[in-house]
């Protein structure tokens, strides 16, 4: 695979059409938006997309499994609320900047727990993940309101709200964390037994069961991973805002699913990868950023991204052979 000639690049793009699209809009905005082709702007794009991008990584796993998670926006808000609130708990009052550590740990654990609850219900009841997580979307949002009492929390520790302004070498720390997550999840999905089993469970569940893969615990693990990533995303978002609001992350599930589907992951399971999802996330990020720079109102971005989503679906149907054997059904 190391020999990169024209043909193999083309073939790679054929398999990952979203990257062709990313390339296209990248060139387009470089030529037409004044401040687009700028290193600082690239950093911006990465930081802006990191919130949705990190969750999209988890959504890829869950969707390859043949499930879906609509509760990620609410989980994000709950984790953000914990991350900001726990810092000011009396127990950690004397910890100085170290009070951030238990806060973040608790926030991430809460995310993992929410994922585990979803996964456990999906496993034991056999109710479709769409319904389970639709319920959880409402319920976890309810927990956020119960916990926050409808008010916003503000970070009192400035080290916390300054965190997002830090840079690690040439990149902002948020971008570094995002890219790190991309690499780890990619590695998980493509190199580990759990990752390969993710394809097996989504691609042919019966075969996976017969081969002795414990489908239930396997799915719980993936729901825990997406819970963790949603919580991480919530923590990072709250460092950017220096606060956590109860309505944080509303509609994020829709954006995340859009990015993942753009990246070529199938709702029916068994198909998709992180490279595609990363492309889908970047496509949305570049569109938003580029159009913003061109002073196009945000409304048009909504229309265009929705239209692209449908177009991707249409093209996919057109070019991927259908399995009805030419019957006019």
């Amino acid at each position: 695979m190391s020999r990169l000639n024209d043909i193999s690049v083309l073939r790679w793009l054929m398999r990952n059409p979203i990257w062709g699209f990313v390339l296209l809009i990248f060139v387009f905005f470089s030529l037409s938006a004044d401040n687009f082709f700028d290193y600082r702007n690239f950093q911006n794009i990465l930081v802006q997309t990191s919130t949705i991008g990190i969750i999209a990584l988890g959504m890829t796993l869950v969707m390859i499994n043949g499930n879906i998670d609509l509760s990620v926006g609410a989980t994000l808000a709950l984790a953000a609320a914990f991350a900001v609130d726990v810092q000011s708990w009396a127990a950690f009052a004397t910890w100085g900047n170290w009070q951030i550590l238990p806060a973040v740990c608790i926030a991430l654990l809460v995310g993992i727990l929410m994922g585990a609850i979803n996964g456990f219900i999906v496993w034991k009841t056999g109710v479709d993940a769409f319904i389970v997580t639709l319920g959880a979307m409402l319920g976890i949002r309810g927990l956020v309101f119960v916990y926050t009492g409808e008010s916003s929390f503000f970070a009192t520790n400035f080290a916390y709200s300054d965190f997002s302004a830090l840079s690690l070498g040439p990149l902002p720390v948020l971008a570094v964390i995002f890219l790190l997550c991309v690499m780890v999840v990619h590695w998980l999905l493509s190199r580990t037994v759990h990752g390969r089993n993710t394809y097996a469970v989504g691609g042919n569940r019966e075969a996976a069961v017969n081969a002795g893969i414990r489908v239930g615990p396997h799915m719980i693990l993936n729901f825990m991973i997406i819970g963790f990533l949603a919580a991480l995303s919530g923590v990072l978002l709250s460092t950017q805002m220096g606060a956590a609001t109860p309505n944080l992350g509303r509609d994020y599930e829709l954006w995340v699913i859009t990015a993942v589907v753009l990246g070529g992951t199938k709702l029916t399971g068994g198909k998709g990868d992180i490279i595609g999802t990363f492309g889908g996330v970047l496509a949305i990020g570049i569109m938003r950023n580029g159009m913003n720079l061109m002073q196009v109102p945000a409304f048009y971005v909504l229309v265009i991204i929705g239209a692209i989503l449908i177009a991707v679906l249409f093209l996919d149907k057109r070019f991927n052979t259908s399995n009805d054997g030419g019957l006019r059904l």
Binding site: T258, L267, F299, L302, V303, I305, G306, A307, L313
Partner: peptide
Amino acid sequence: LIVTLGMLSVIQGL
């Protein structure tokens, strides 16, 4: 699911 998700976004934009 995906078509109406896309339409959700398109119509909100409109």
